[in-house]
Nucleic acid binder design. Structure first.
Length: 343
DNA sequence: GAATCGTGGCT
DNA sequence: TAGCCAAGATT
């Protein structure tokens, strides 16, 4: 039998109410009375958000974070907005543990946007080392130049301005606005999406590949009113997703939300198998590009086409990859079939 | 929406 | 072992 909890509609957030004429049902059969959200039957819209219970959830995670947060270098209170931006871009699709030492070296070399704006592409590509996706290093340099030209050499604080920087998308713009400037913005990364999907919506993983409008509304409804508190919740939620509520093997027994988690209450049902094309890496252009870049990074000066031949035996694929690297601005072609990192 | 874009650790 | 996964952005 279902126990309905009729959540209170906060008048200040009444715009969140969607389809309020439909009957209320709990978000899942196992949802406890502390589940902060109910849905309207037959829709995916949010009916109501119980802000009291949402606050309990966010407070729990924030309290956990205060005890278990990793000691990452950019979490030093003295870190500049520039440092935050660098940490966020470096952390895109790259494990944080691998980012930390690179971030420290990077910040020592280019402590301000103006410093990086004066660097050469070759310098930033080498400093990027093996973080992966080296285009991010070029975008960061271009962002530094734009910051100097359009924003008086200071990292902009507005989400909309941050979005104009190359390599800065929704997540990174929101993360900088929140973590560097204490603004109340929804920070929806893969960790936050997973934690909310499980603890509130009762499903193992978010349904869609990219955040939906419904997800944003839900995340917005759960966001603490105060900007600093909202940012603290976001970073704490990300940390919980990274350390406890992980994608592959969540440690529910040690989770602060175990007693209120909708997914745990439902018996941790597995997500429906959606046949994703298993993305292999071996033999792809990405691997070849990586090998070519590794040779160019290690070389002091220009490299011959013959030297690059050792990267990959397939001439056609190797040359195709070299062309795309040139098109991306990661490689500079020279006369007599020689190549180098762009100066 | 789907494809593309590095790298290395973990299971 | 081979696949999965990691603080996404761009085209």
């Amino acid at each position: 039998m279902q126990q309905y909890q009729r959540s209170k509609v906060c008048r200040a957030n009444s715009w969140l109410v969607v389809g309020s004429s439909a009957p209320f049902v709990p978000i899942s059969l196992g949802a406890r009375q502390t589940c902060p959200v109910t849905r309207t039957e037959g829709t995916s819209g949010i009916s109501e958000v119980d802000h009291g219970n949402a606050e309990l959830l966010t407070q729990s995670v924030r309290g956990w974070f205060e005890v278990h947060a990793r000691d990452l270098p950019w979490r030093d209170p003295g870190t500049s907005a520039w440092g935050v931006l660098i940490s966020e871009v470096m952390s895109q699709q790259t494990p944080v543990a691998r980012v930390a030492p690179a971030w420290q070296r990077w910040m020592a070399q280019w402590p301000t946007p103006a410093d990086l704006a004066a660097a050469s592409p070759a310098d930033v590509i080498r400093a990027w080392d093996r973080l992966g996706y080296p285009r991010r290093a070029l975008w960061l340099r271009e962002a530094a130049i734009k910051i100097c030209e359009d924003f008086d050499s200071a990292v902009p604080s507005r989400y909309e301005d941050l979005l104009t920087l190359p390599g800065v998308g929704d997540y990174t713009a929101a993360a900088v606005a929140a973590f560097a400037f204490g603004q109340r913005v929804v920070v929806l990364d893969t960790n936050v999406r997973r934690v909310i999907a499980r603890s509130v919506s009762g499903v193992e993983t978010p349904e869609s590949a990219s955040p939906t409008v419904a997800e944003r509304r839900l995340a917005e409804a759960m966001l603490p009113i105060d900007g600093a508190a909202a940012a603290h919740w976001s970073v704490a939620c990300m940390e919980l997703g990274a350390l406890v509520c992980t994608s592959r093997s969540p440690d529910c027994g040690e989770c602060v939300l175990k007693s209120t988690c909708a997914w745990v209450a439902a018996g941790r049902p597995a997500a429906a198998n959606r046949a994703r094309p298993t993305q292999r890496f071996t033999g792809t252009d990405r691997q070849v590009r990586g090998k070519l870049m590794a040779i160019l990074r290690a070389a002091d000066g220009p490299v011959t086409a013959r030297a690059l031949g050792s990267a990959w035996p397939d001439d056609t694929q190797r040359m195709r990859c070299l062309d795309t690297l040139i098109a991306d601005g990661l490689v500079e072609p020279l006369p007599r079939s020689r190549y180098r990192l762009p100066t």
